[in-house]
Structures are given as C-alpha cells and as structure tokens.
Amino acid sequence: MAKIIVVTSGKGGVGKTTSSAAIGTGLALAGHKTVIVDFDIGLRNLDLIMGCERRVVYDFVNVINGEANLKQTLIKDKRTDNLFILPASQTRDKDALTREGVEKVLNELAKDFDFIICDSPAGIESGAMMALYFADEAVVVTNPEVSSVRDSDRILGMLSSKSRRAEQGLEGIKEHLLLTRYNPERVEKGEMLSVEDVKEILAIELIGVIPESQAVLNASNSGQPVILDKDSDAGQAYLDTIKRLLGEQVPFRFLTVEKKGFIKRIFGG
C-alpha cells in the first residue's frame, strides 16, 4: 500500500518544492519506489528543481482529462533509480483539478509506488486542499519566523478537519514539522525563532531542521535536488530527515553556532 505524503506550509516561499524534491529523492535513494506529484497547477516549478523541465510532454491535468495516460506522462529521473515526477500543467489553473480526477490518478499511482509525495501549492485554497485531501502523512514546512508559523498552524487545522481521513473519521493524518532556513547565529542574536519556540507553538513532532545554506540556491539553479549534494549541511540535514521519516532515531544537527577554529579565524572561511 502506497503512502501518500503531502508537503505543505500555507505560506509561499518557505521551501515546499525544494523539500518535496529532496524528500522524494531521499526516499528513492533508500530504495523505495517514489513519485513526486506537482500540485501547483499554473506555477510549474518542481520540474525545474528536479532538472527535467525539458522532458515535460504531458502533465497532471492531461492525465485527469484522459488526454494522456500515466505511463506517457511520468518522467523518470535520470540520476536516481526508483524516482518519477508527475509535472503540473503550466497553462491551466488550480480549478482544473477535480477531487474525483485526483483520486483516480492517486489510486493508479498507488498500485506501482511505495511513496507518493504531493508538492502542495501555497495558500489554503482549492489547490492546496486538493493536495492534502488524500494524504496519510504531512510534512509541514515552516521557516523560523512568526508569519510562517501562523500559516503552518492554519494548515495544521485544515489537515485535521478538511482531509479525507478527517471526513471519514479515520485515524488522523500523521503530522511532521520540517523547519527550513534555520540560522543558529540569528537565533542566538534573538532575530529568529528557535526550534523550541516553533515546537512549542505548533505542538507537533519535529522531523528535521534544514540550515539556511548557499547549497540550496545552488542546487535549485542547477536543477539538482540538494539532498544529492552530500557534502553540504543542507543535504546532510535532508538525509537525516529521510531516516527519521522511515522510522530511524537520528540526533538533530546544525542547531548551534559552529565555533570557528583558530586557523579559520585567521584565514577566513
């Protein structure tokens, strides 16, 4: 039985698509057959982050409308085995998704895949609701600042009331908190909310803390999920996150300011 994981946040620009790409790639690296579905109809980004924008022929809306089948539409990732992408349509809008259509596609994907990652659009309108409706688990991406935390709180309310699991009275969606763009230096100066602050407000289990890193922007621009950059702090933090998602106990890293050594202090770095 495939597990459907929605990556959501309410607020835009916090790192949903970056995290979707990293989580999808990480699960595939761990040997699980994974598909990442871009629900952001009209603002197609996932294919760019995954570096497959030139290979998009058909899209999610084509499949829903019966204009193409899944086999024609799914894009196989060239770097990672077991990984596929279902791109969004750039020419349509969110209303092109119907609940029946989405359910049909997800059911079909569930036959072949272990994990279905739903990359949600920002906001709390129909597109975001569609992405979270069928989810079994949710990764709530949050930046350590007040507006992002409040929007995440709002989305958590939606997850517990507007999802299929909530409507059918099933066990609720398993919620995970993924804190991104974390900067321990700024936390120390009191310019940014700390991990503890965010955990206290949102009261859900923490699954990962991704440090603010140049590597993320570089990875996005080169169309390569940051998790593949294993030397970077962000890449390692995402690898830890995947292990936790799969049930392993891994200590949290990159939470404190790194003390610069004597040589680094002299020569910079």
């Binding site: 709390i124 409040r150 929007d151 709180d153 709002r154 958590l156 309310g157 939606m158 517990s160 009331s161 009261a203």
Partner: peptide, 8 residues
C-alpha cells in the same frame, strides 16, 4: 481534546 489551530 487537541490544539485549536489558527483560523478555527
């Protein structure tokens, strides 16, 4: 029983 979230 649970937390009342923003907007609820």
């Amino acid at each position: 029983e649970q937390t009342v979230r923003s907007g609820q």
